[in-house]
């Protein structure tokens, strides 16, 4: 079977690409995609380690919880992005720099 370190290597690469996407993109939806990439790297780690926990299923259950949390986060974040677009007419996170008042 596949080694644990191979999974962790793929996951590390995915995490760093997500970090780069978050730091460089100037569009909130793309920043959100970067966050999702990092979350998926974490889920891949959970699943890879979960192989060694057959009885209590820790890794796979919390991977499931993480997927559901990511979906809830995305729904709220996209609602916020739409509101920001309505107010500022842009979704560049660098340009939305003042509060309501």
């Amino acid at each position: 079977m596949i080694n644990l370190s191979d999974f962790l290597l793929v996951s590390a690469g995915l995490f760093c690409i997500g970090l780069y996407v978050i730091l460089t993109k100037r569009n909130s939806i793309q920043v959100l995609i970067g966050i999702e990439l990092m979350l998926n790297a974490a889920i891949l780690n959970l699943v890879a380690f979960g192989k060694y926990d057959k009885i209590s299923n820790g890794g796979q259950t919390f991977a499931l919880f993480a997927i559901v949390l990511a979906a809830a986060t995305t729904a709220v974040a996209l609602a916020i992005i739409l509101n920001v677009y309505k107010k500022y007419k842009t979704i560049d996170p660098g340009k939305t720099d003042h509060l309501k008042d």
Binding site: I2, F7, V10, E36, I43, L44, V47, A48, G50, K51, G59, Q60, A63, L64, I67, V68, A70, A71
Partner: peptide, 18 residues
């Protein structure tokens, strides 16, 4: 990759939810 990590249910959830 999740299927290869022997987590088939997580893989299906990933496809359905994401």
């Amino acid at each position: 990759l999740y299927v290869l990590a022997l987590a088939d249910f997580i893989a299906i959830t990933q496809i359905v939810v994401y």
